[in-house]
Amino acid sequence: MKRYLRHPFWQSGLVLIAAYLVVTLGIAYLPPILGIASAPVPGSVVLQYMATVLVGILLYVSSDEDRWREFKEPVEVMLTSPDKRYVRSALLVAIPALIGVLTFFQVRPTVAAPPNLRSIHPAPPSQISFRGQPIVLDRLENPLRHEGDLNEHLAVGRRTYYQNCVACHGDALDGNGHFADAFSPRPLEFGTSTIAQLTESFVFWRIAKGGVGLPREGAPWNSAMPAWEDVLTEDEIWSVSIFLYDQAGVSPRTWEAE
């Protein structure tokens, strides 16, 4: 037993299994113990991680001449030694069979929709048409931040939000409105992580043009967000944006000075 534990071949196998357990079970179930949200890792990412670990292991065992020879030894013994005849035959059947089974599951027709890639923050156009009027988004800032009374804009924004947005995005702006469970993807929450990365012009574009106005990589057919330019005025959208940033307690990403 100890002999096996010291052998690089079996060590590698153990490391591989341990890594697999960490990736599949560890990431999914350990953080929740500490109160951090987590979820099972998608198959594509598991594959990617395991491939990286496997490459790392192979690099390690082959980086030293002696270790590499030792590592290859069980493989050679298995392939050549006469007293391993039955193991060899079993493997010769088992490995192709395994590949066959994997291939079967790969090509088997399923009813699941193919995974699609949805870009959460697709590139905005430089210019949009807002109710027929062109608005240049590039370097655009919220005009209401420089004019009028900010508290008044906040009040308008709050009213607009609670009249229009609350059903999906929720009372607490956490994306848990009454309709939220009906949608996939779920409505966005306005925490620090999302809108703080964005310029206000981006937020304006998303509110004005909604899901249908998303470019292709944003998978417009997936988003239920209406195009609010048909309902809200320009100033109302800007006010909502002020309200959102105020509630999230962050300031929008700014344009760097020229």
Partner: peptide, 17 residues
């Protein structure tokens, strides 16, 4: 012609508020 008024403006936006 207004520069952005392409044929894509699908819905008739309200003319005023």
């Amino acid at each position: 012609a207004d520069p952005a008024g392409g044929a894509t403006a699908g819905s008739a936006a309200p003319a005023s508020t």
